[in-house]
């Protein structure tokens, strides 16, 4: 039996997600900093999702560039 989730405090599971991503990256953020990152993520995630709503970018190339060189002998 699992404990009921506190949907009021974290209705979208953002806190769980942020803590998981930080842990996966090996970043030992403490409580106050994690709380700040969770709060910021609540704003940042929709902003990042909105980038996928830019219709003009649908078939666009990213700003990525490889420097290709012929290796010197």
């Amino acid at each position: 039996m699992t404990a009921p989730r506190d949907e009021t405090a974290d209705p979208y599971g953002i806190g769980v997600r942020v803590r998981g991503l930080l842990a996966a990256a090996g970043l030992p953020a403490g409580g106050r900093e994690t709380a700040g990152l969770v709060a910021a993520y609540g704003v940042q995630r929709p902003a990042m999702d909105a980038l996928f709503d830019v219709a003009e970018a649908r078939y666009e190339q990213p700003v990525l560039r490889r420097d290709v060189h012929v290796p010197r002998a």
């Binding site: 991503l21 993520y41 190339q61």
Partner: peptide, 21 residues
């Protein structure tokens, strides 16, 4: 810097596509 852990690879590439546009 830690915020970078909250960005997916697709987020990053999409950001670069939007920069092109």
């Amino acid at each position: 810097l830690a915020t970078g852990a909250l960005v997916s690879g697709a987020d990053y590439v999409q950001a670069q596509r939007v920069r092109t546009v």
